[in-house]
Simulated scan of single mutants.
Amino acid sequence: MLTKQKKLILSHAQRDMMRRAGSVNAELMDFLRPHVQAGITTLEIDKMVHEWTYDHGHKAATLGYQKYPKCCCISINEVICHGIPDSTVLKDGDIVNVDITTIVDGWHGDQSETFLIGEVTEEKRAVTQCAFDCMHLAIDQLTPGCRVATIGETVTPEAHRRGFTVVREYVGHGLGRQFHLDPSIPHFPNRQSRIDRLFAGMCFTVEPMINAGTRYTKSDKQDGWTVRTKDGRPSAQFEHSILMTEKGPEILTETKNGPEKGHRF
């Protein structure tokens, strides 16, 4: 176990590479931001991701990953994650999560945001606020060497306090030269997360998926990717890439124009 964890520790030069990957990915999110509005198709957003990424000399991590067909994941309303961009038009009242991952000189930057399109229901607004707040609350609790379970022990009680649930089937992950690395980062406490620790030099994502209704999910058997809430109620998610430093967690995917900690939707 110790040997395995040592492999996850980045040198200072490698940390800088991850910082650059995160910064590039955040720049892409800010580029997309004004376009995520009513009237655009999710396929048009994906095309923007493709053009911006490759025009800047980078790669979209999801394109071809385990045969995934697009450059990003776009999940609307009851879709929890892995929504495939298509001809669907965003409309007033939707909430939509845009999840982007960019490979920059071999290193991965990964993040997602949930956008509110026009006037949304109070339930959609509240579940979006909860996902955003839970992400930041969890990040704020992290310290060098802390247990991974710190994240789940923060997210789950807060979500339940607000009347929402936490998805268990899909979790955060280590990040670096590969898209998905150890350790697994569940947003609920379990046995393994009480064992795994987050040491200085480790990169990982914090990305709670919060459901308005049941925590249970159902996968689309036709496309093999899209995951929806089992009861059809809305779900929201936010994600940042995090570098644990000797002083504490550093957010690598902070945007210039996006919502900051404490934002009210």
Rank of each mutant, 00 (worst) to 15 (best):
residue 143 T to Q: 15
residue 144 P to Y: 05
residue 144 P to S: 09
residue 145 G to Y: 09
residue 145 G to D: 12
residue 145 G to C: 13
residue 146 C to L: 13
residue 147 R to H: 10
residue 147 R to C: 12
residue 147 R to W: 07
residue 148 V to W: 12
residue 148 V to L: 10
residue 148 V to A: 09
residue 149 A to F: 04
residue 150 T to C: 13
residue 150 T to D: 14
residue 150 T to R: 15
residue 150 T to V: 10
residue 151 I to Y: 13
residue 151 I to M: 10
residue 151 I to H: 08
residue 152 G to P: 03
residue 152 G to I: 06
residue 153 E to V: 00
residue 154 T to Y: 02
residue 154 T to S: 08
residue 154 T to M: 06
residue 154 T to G: 02
residue 154 T to A: 05
residue 155 V to N: 00
residue 155 V to F: 05
residue 155 V to S: 01
residue 156 T to Q: 06
residue 156 T to L: 08
residue 156 T to A: 07
residue 157 P to G: 14
residue 157 P to F: 09
residue 158 E to H: 08
residue 158 E to Q: 11
residue 159 A to N: 08
residue 160 H to C: 12
residue 160 H to L: 13
residue 160 H to P: 03
residue 161 R to M: 12
residue 161 R to I: 13
residue 161 R to V: 15
residue 161 R to H: 14
residue 161 R to S: 15
residue 161 R to N: 10
residue 162 R to H: 13
residue 162 R to W: 05
residue 162 R to A: 06
residue 163 G to K: 12
residue 163 G to W: 11
residue 164 F to D: 01
residue 166 V to Q: 00
residue 167 V to G: 00
residue 167 V to E: 01
residue 168 R to G: 02
residue 168 R to H: 05
residue 169 E to R: 05
residue 169 E to C: 04
residue 169 E to A: 02
residue 170 Y to N: 02
residue 170 Y to G: 00
residue 171 V to R: 00
residue 171 V to Q: 00
residue 171 V to H: 00
residue 173 H to Q: 13
residue 173 H to T: 00
residue 173 H to Y: 08
residue 174 G to Y: 02
residue 174 G to M: 06
residue 174 G to Q: 08
residue 174 G to R: 02
residue 176 G to T: 06
residue 176 G to H: 02
residue 177 R to D: 14
residue 177 R to L: 11
residue 177 R to S: 14
residue 177 R to A: 15
residue 178 Q to C: 08
residue 178 Q to N: 12
residue 179 F to E: 12
residue 179 F to C: 12
residue 179 F to T: 09
residue 179 F to V: 06
